[in-house]
Every structure is written in C-alpha cells, then in structure tokens.
C-alpha cells in the first residue's frame, strides 16, 4: 500500500466514483422512461410500430456500447454546423452529455425487453379479473399490471444496472473523468499498478452495495408472498 499515492490520487478517484454514479443514475432513469413506450410498441397491435421498435432493440443490443459511444461523440462533431444552427452544439461538445445520451439509448433497449417480459409474465387472469370489476384499460395497467410487473422486473433490472455501471467505464475513453478516467490519469502519471486495484475495489463495492439494496427492496415487495418466513410457526 502506497500511502503517498493514495493521498494524491485517492480523493480524485472518489470524485470519479461520484461521476460514475451520476452517469449511471441519469442513464438508467432516462432510459427507463424511454423503455416503457418501446416495450408497449413491441407489444402493439399496429404492425409498423412493432417492426420499428424491434429493429431498434435488435440494433442496439447487437452492437458494442463503445462503438455506439464513438458514433455519437465523434459523429456529432461532423454535424457541428447543423447542431450550431439549432443551438444544440454546446450539448454535443460535452463528452459527459454524449455519454449520457448514448447510455440512455442503450439501456432503453435492454430495459424495454425486461419490461416487456415482465408485463407478459403477469397472468392473463389479472387482466380479466380487473376488466370484470369494470376498470378501464389504463387503470388496469397502472394499478394492477404494472405494479406486479415491476416486482418481476426488479431482479433483471438490478442486473441491467450492474451492466451499466460496468459499461459506463467506456466513458473514460472519450475523455470523461469517471472512476475509470481518473484511474487511467493516475496510472499515466504515477506508473503505479496499484491504482487499478483500488479502482477494482471501488467498482466491486459499488456493485455489491447495489446488489444488497435490490435484495432488500425485493424482500419488502414480496413479503405478502412469503409471510411464513417471518410469521411464527403454528400447529
């Protein structure tokens, strides 16, 4: 353990960890908002909607995140005059924004598949029972289907967030100083291999914390299903 090195680069790397968390949180939340409409389009009765959303999901899932990031970040530079004309160039000039945009579009495709699977996993009888109570389609969806679907989606969603945390490290390659970016900077200045191991510990801590939190949320959301584990045994 090199304490001098830790004093120099430790705080910067913690700052990088914060940037990583910001990057992932923004992308996951924005991507989630985009994912629900895509999921519904995938299940739509209108064929062209189904085709377009399928093509989108397929294309995003079939290409590497790094290539997508390059396409947005370097590709935007080519449309500088056009972007300046509509007053959006200041956004696309910023690597952090380009990464959030790419990651959002990327996770939207993955999350859409998760939500689609979860909605379809809710038994048909739930729709029928709700309809027979005289609830409208939207009310059924909001109060009955989505609430149950979210419980099914929670675990895959947790996996997707972990994948996003890991994937967000490619932001370092397009000059964002996230945890990976700070680590690379520290290594290029100190040539001490230790910094990579510190980064590994920080990433593992982040992923492990998230896993625990998901476990707790899941236990709270399913406590009506497994009451036996907490209730005292009788008879």
């Amino acid at each position: 353990m090199n304490w001098e090195l830790l004093a120099t680069y430790g705080p910067r790397m913690l700052g990088g960890l914060v940037v990583t968390i910001e990057l992932v949180t923004l992308s996951i939340v924005l991507g989630g908002m985009l994912a629900l409409p895509i999921a519904f389009a995938r299940m739509s009765r209108i064929a062209p909607l189904r085709w377009v959303s399928y093509a989108y999901v397929y294309a995003v899932r079939g290409t590497p995140l790094l290539a997508q990031t390059f396409l947005v970040y370097y590709g935007a530079g080519q449309f500088r005059p056009e972007l300046q004309a509509i007053g959006l160039w200041w956004l696309f000039r910023d690597a952090f924004f380009c990464c959030v945009l790419t990651f959002t579009l990327n996770t939207a495709a993955y999350q859409a598949e998760i939500y689609r699977g979860a909605i379809r996993a809710v038994p048909r009888g739930q729709w029928e029972a709700a309809a027979s109570l005289g609830l409208g389609r939207l009310a059924v969806l909001r109060h009955i289907i989505l609430t149950q679907a979210f419980r099914i989606a929670l675990r895959p969603l947790g996996n997707e967030i972990v994948l996003m945390i890991k994937g967000s490290s490619v932001a370092a390659i397009v000059t964002v100083f996230d945890l990976m970016g700070e680590t690379r900077l520290a290594f290029s200045r100190s040539f001490d291999f230790q910094v990579y191991l510190w980064a590994a510990v920080l990433y593992l801590a982040l992923v492990e914390t998230l896993r625990r939190v998901i476990d707790i949320i899941e236990r709270r959301m399913t406590r009506h299903i497994h009451p036996a584990s907490s209730a005292p045994k009788t008879g």
């Binding site: 967000s168 290594f187 191991l197």
Partner: peptide, 21 residues
C-alpha cells in the same frame, strides 16, 4: 463474484499492465 462485478475494460487493463509487470 469479482470478475462479474469488475468492468470488462478494467479487467483488460489489469491483465495487460499487471501481466507486463
């Protein structure tokens, strides 16, 4: 647990630079 939790990019750097050392 470790290699599913680490970013692939970091694993590549660790193997590349660590291997060199």
């Amino acid at each position: 647990t470790v290699f599913r939790g680490l970013p692939e990019l970091l694993t590549i750097f660790i193997v590349y630079f660590g291997g060199q050392i």
